[in-house]
Nucleic acid binder design. Structure first.
Lengths: 343, 343
DNA sequence: GTTTCTTGCGTGAGCGTTCCCAGTATTATG
DNA sequence: CATAATACTGGGAACGCTCACGCAAGAAAC
């Protein structure tokens, strides 16, 4: 249409073309695009019109070649943690993350893998500036990856308290301890006195903290029979742990499980053992996932603000992007006991 | 620690530096990096050594600036479809996708949004070459986005059969029709003769096909009482639909629901109505999600190969990337009836 | 021994930005 | 009216890479 006299190999307009259209120079258009104030209002208008007319959009590659920023953050999901992954947890966090990033011009790059291969790839991507920072979710407590990244000065945000924290890496977590404590206290307040815990894996902060919360709630209580069995957050492990508990205390009248899945398994075992829930045994789970809504009776459970965790993760990362080198405090989010039929 | 003795202006080694180290030229190193054969084995070795020594990694921005490829694909998730999102569906598809993409050098870019704003952003990203292609999951059947993208020649892969298919856009879907049909037939074969359907929304292919499967299974059967009520895949809608059905046929002895959530709702209502599952009424759901495993009794359900759907989506996209303009047939994946206690 | 391929390699020209410095016009100041 | 300060703007250089050419040297053909 407009006879620029030049054969365009590619369709997209460039800065230079916008400049020609607006009758100014490349530099000026760049200033407009990047919101510099040193532009007169008249040229500003002219340039904006040209941009609209041509439908100009900056070329990301060219820009990041010179700025050395990519405006992309990496989300790393350890796929080995399959059960965590399947819960609404993942979806919720991702949604929160996306929501917060959408307010900025940051892109989300997703990566799923596990083991050494993953670690290498992540280190490369971050170390070589292919992404500006990384959010890591659901990795094992002793993973050395976050520390490594922090050491090379990369912005990092973690979901879940890291297991060994020699180096301070910013993280967000639910208040697992308080959540477990309030659940256990609720059981006690309802008159239960033989309260068992089905604990999660003790090499993950969540597993540890939830058990600690249970213990803390019962610390100064007398006349409470405690029994603890361990699982791995999975449903089968919950069934086993429950059987274990019943063997050790057939009179148990309450169960606090470290996950909904474990609680669901426990309820199944209890039913088979002829125990009624909640009449004979009260059960509380953790996560407030879909399964909690669909057990019979529906399960009382400790809810984590999953979506909020996502937004906080994003904020943590954005702050580091904006103020490099600033050290950030962990963000601990409150949990909520959702009461349903099982306790 | 290691005294490199060089003031790190940028840190990362460039092609030129590798070339200097290996005693060859930029171009040759580029050839090696890109696997061109026109390199003698001796120089090949020399260059590779230099690359290892310096830890060279190609600069993505620079490369994509000239090649006009980004080696990135966009995954678009319509967040309005919250229930779909919460199911293991999303996680499974994403995992399959990631798994397949990991075999290539493609990155996954995640975007969640909805409505017009989303559509614009996606169009921009794709249209301006910020990504090489897009995978769209869980959007409403009548979304014009996929067609638009196909029209501008962008590689696209869809999850779920598009509603209006004037333009052929490659997609993968579970065989909803066959799945629903086999579930319904199973109910018939077990001697049920008053078989109700709790249908999903009729503006989505999945909703339509599953109902069609039910109808098809019963088509030539005589002496079968049919009753259909509609919902939106959600649990509450399942409860309502079930009540509706009971009102119209209190003697109903089987229910095929278009989703697990609806089936779970139905089971709850049936229990309240004093019906035993499966003795009085058999129930089958669709999706084989977590809730199916945790109802009481556990739910018989039609399973979709979610992860496989992810890998197939990736393959569809990769093929288009490799052979631009080639039109691809839809991929329909088989479902499987998972038998549990409810039918 | 000259000519013609073939194979391997080096080099210049961009890709579309941003950054910076040097202008030019405009306005304030003496 | 001259000079200094200010406000905008233009254009060169660079970011790190790929690609198309072109040249050198050895192999094959005459």
């Amino acid at each position: 249409m407009t006879s620029l006299g030049r054969v365009r190999t590619t369709g997209r307009p460039t800065l230079e073309q916008v400049a020609a259209e607006a009758g100014v120079s490349r530099g000026t258009v760049s200033r407009v695009v990047n919101g510099s104030l040193e532009v007169s209002t008249t040229t500003l208008r002219a340039v904006q019109d040209a941009i609209d007319k041509l439908g100009y959009v900056p070329n990301h590659a060219a820009r990041s070649l010179v700025t050395r920023r990519t405006d992309t953050v990496l989300l790393v999901v350890s796929e080995s943690e399959a059960r965590v992954f399947d819960e609404p947890f993942f979806a919720g966090v991702v949604r929160g993350l996306g929501q917060e990033l959408a307010k900025t011009n940051l892109q989300l790059n997703l990566m799923m893998a596990s083991g050494a291969r993953q670690r290498d790839r992540v280190e490369q991507l971050v170390g070589n500036g292919h992404v500006d920072g990384a959010v890591l979710i659901s990795l094992h407590g002793d993973d050395p990856l976050p520390r490594k990244l922090v050491e090379v000065g990369a912005p990092v945000a973690l979901n879940g308290r890291p297991f060994s924290s020699e180096v301070a890496v910013p993280f967000v977590d639910a208040d697992n301890l308080a959540g477990a404590k309030s659940a256990t206290e609720y059981l006690y307040q309802s008159g239960r006195r033989r309260i068992a815990a089905l604990a999660g894996p003790q090499d993950m902060a969540a597993g540890i903290d939830r058990l600690a919360g249970y213990r803390s709630a019962l610390k100064s209580r007398r006349g409470v029979t405690r029994v603890v069995a361990q699982g791995d957050f999975g449903q089968v492990s919950g069934e086993q742990a429950m059987r274990d508990v019943l063997e050790r205390d057939s009179e148990v009248d309450a169960v606090f499980a470290a996950s909904d899945l474990m609680a669901a398994g426990a309820m199944r075992v209890l039913r088979e053992a002829g125990k009624r829930v909640p009449e004979d045994v009260a059960v509380i789970g953790f996560d407030d996932s879909d399964v909690a809504r669909n057990t019979e009776p529906a399960m009382t459970s400790v809810a984590q603000p999953v979506q909020r965790m996502g937004t906080e993760l994003a904020k943590l990362l954005i702050t580091q992007l904006e103020e490099p080198g600033r050290s950030l405090d962990p963000v601990i989010l409150p949990t909520e006991l959702v009461r349903r039929g099982s306790a």
